[in-house]
Write a protein that binds this DNA or RNA. Structure first.
Lengths: 113, 113
DNA sequence: GTATTATGTTGCTTCTAATTAACATCGCTT
DNA sequence: AAGCGATGTTAATTAGAAGCAACATAATAC
């Protein structure tokens, strides 16, 4: 993602940690299946170097590459649970509080009942 | 991710679906919290246009941007479950079958006992 | 109804993700 | 211990991601 993007150049600790963990796990799954990087790459339609980047948790690599690796390993299903609105308790509470409309916010909204 | 990458240009159906779902969910979480795209973007250190891309599920956008959005919304925790080796039954089975080593594969491996 | 804010869209620029090729190194396998 | 395959590393190239500006449209607040 060209242009010095703060979040990619120096991600918050949580993001970096999540990335490295995801990369390690993809590598583990690949090794268990005895696939060379080059073969996984071929299935995804990318070069082997991109697979190596993914396994290192490179932040600037496109998300489709990461999801593609999960897909090629048969592990994409677990993405269904991420950010599920039904499980977002904080979000649900906020929605109940305000009117459930679009964004707007700004300064003092007067519905602070 | 510059250079025509097959997986990003025309992702497999499952990947595209997962991406659009993720984008929609990020949008939903943002609206519930009454944050404008520009404000979420500011917290992440990117421009508002990138947030719009994420909510549309753009495949070529860097993974750090997606994870950064989840992070800024307090939803990053759910990434812990993705590709968990303990839950990869297929991988575990394969590991038990072969020697649990590195990759190699190639043609006829002779350990077909 | 009017002002204000949010989001979408277009065009342009800048910087880099991903490719390829060549070589080094590390691990298996025999 | 020799050979082969997998992975790491470097360098050069190129097409595109992300930034920014300006304007249009849509939705909310007053």
């Amino acid at each position: 993602m060209p242009r010095p993007t703060k979040i990619a150049a120096s991600p918050p600790a949580g993001v970096e940690e999540a990335l490295e963990r995801l990369g390690r796990r993809i590598r583990t799954a690949r090794l268990r299946r005895r696939l060379p990087q080059a073969e996984l790459a071929a299935r995804m339609g990318v070069s082997r170097f991109v697979v190596a980047d993914v396994e290192r948790g490179k932040p600037t690599t496109g998300i489709a590459v990461y999801l593609g690796a999960l897909w090629a390993l048969g592990l994409l299903g677990q993405m269904r649970e991420v950010a599920d609105p039904d499980r977002d308790e904080e979000g649900k509470a906020l929605e109940r509080a305000h009117s459930p409309r679009r964004a707007h916010r700004r300064g003092a909204l007067s519905d602070d009942f």
